[in-house]
Design a protein around this nucleic acid. Sequence first.
DNA 1: ACCCGTCGATACCGCACCGGTATCGATCCC
DNA 2: GGGATCGATACCGGTGCGGTATCGACGGGT
Lengths: 281, 281
Amino acid sequence: METRELRYFVAVAEELHFGRAAERLGIAQPPLSRAIRQLEHRLGARLLERSSRAVALTEAGATLLREGRAALDAVAAAERRTRRAAQATGAGGIVLVTKAGAAGELLAKLLDAYAAEPGAVPVDVLLCGPGEQERLLRTGHADVGLLHLPYDRVTGLDTEPLRTEGQVAVLPAGHPLTTRTQVRMADVAALPGLPQPRWPAADGSYPDGPGPQVRDHTQLLQLIALGRTMAVMPETVRAHLHDDLVAVPVVDAPDVTTVIAWPPQTRSHPIATLIATAIRL
Amino acid sequence: METRELRYFVAVAEELHFGRAAERLGIAQPPLSRAIRQLEHRLGARLLERSSRAVALTEAGATLLREGRAALDAVAAAERRTRRAAQATGAGGIVLVTKAGAAGELLAKLLDAYAAEPGAVPVDVLLCGPGEQERLLRTGHADVGLLHLPYDRVTGLDTEPLRTEGQVAVLPAGHPLTTRTQVRMADVAALPGLPQPRWPAADGSYPDGPGPQVRDHTQLLQLIALGRTMAVMPETVRAHLHDDLVAVPVVDAPDVTTVIAWPPQTRSHPIATLIATAIRL
DNA sequence: ACCCGTCGATACCGCACCGGTATCGATCCC
DNA sequence: GGGATCGATACCGGTGCGGTATCGACGGGT
């Protein structure tokens, strides 16, 4: 199976429309139809159910979509990492990815400690939205990441835990609950007038609901200060709170574990040093 | 980057010889030379150092070899799992892989418990040599595996621990150390007349050394009974020992954790049930 | 009911590119 | 210095990819 065939199939499976998929791929529709047919014939499996009015995935097609995306990510990672290895033998920096606005002081400590190591190389810090880290690591855009369990998925990555902490409810100053010394999840699940914020899904779209749309933590804290929403977050956010925000411990919220994660094929010395430094912290 | 190019490069990088690589690929040497040159040009990176007498990997080449193998495995897995999903929608069995001669009663209990679950499907058990499980899981030959930390690598797989146990030294009956109630690693590291067995490497070759070559646990136990070697193994091997073999606890050996492992993309109901059953045991 | 619009399949064509054979050029060994 | 080894180059033929033109099936609107 060639990556071209996989790219074609993934495009059709995502669009569920041959015409749009062909446009996205920059080719005409007939070659695309033929390629899919050939792929089906070679695999001996029906991948798509065409009814001349709608296209649907079969069981096998859903499998190939899932596995094919992972395979294409792996190919892209191979290409990207090879390019980076070529242009920067030994001198190339490490790309570290983390969620914007999270793990601030832990990251600062890590970068300081690593810079003091012998043989340390420059570290580029890449900040991204929630849920993007895993893909950036799997596609070779980043070498190592700081993620938060159980929020981030770490399937297919190697990880080491760094720190575990409880969670706090972040509320606008003056809210009735801010007089409490602790709350429970049930207390904050559906506060009148403070709907839960909506985070974007993997495809960038937002789910329906009453809460405001947010992209990162800074934005979120601002919206809480404005009294539009609230959030349950790891307790280290306290460091970033001004007096217009109040944090109340949530006693029955699941603990959040910050982990350092990297793709399993990694074998470079600087990255191994960075990981070892992080674990020692 | 097409999988064909990756296959070609991996062949050359493994053989370090264009002629042999071409033979292995079933093509002539000139097209292979051209394909590698084109790949290098497209990546903008020198992958191989040719000195008309020897071929060597550059830094970028080593990266592409490592990442390319992983990518090819992912493509192979996508193809294999799609075929399996097609021919057996719902009725297809699960393939479980484990080391020959290991985790016997745990496996039996798991299979019994799973068979009693509602919606259970047939489970094919695939026995293989040590170190092969990871690749079988990553290439889609198997769906789930029982592995043993820290012996087996689980990079790139999702795992859940099932059981942790100490290790015992397995010795031929009558050996002086069998009178002891416990030993230390240093006691058994270099026993006169009982050299360590040699396991095959990933490529099937055996390292040099005085000990006998072994392929699986049955063979190993037989060679121990013959007084040719000894081994440190998880304590559950006791169940398989006859009176010609004696097990002595090794107090400072690292604990062995049996884990259930599966590829991260897995999303099938029967496999999820099997994993949940295993964790409950 | 009929027509038109939509959408995937089919037919056919030209060209890029892959793979094969023949040969060269460099290096090492005897 | 001659032969052997090994990768690079030159050239050729065929496969197959992508393009345009068109068909056929299904739905929806008036």
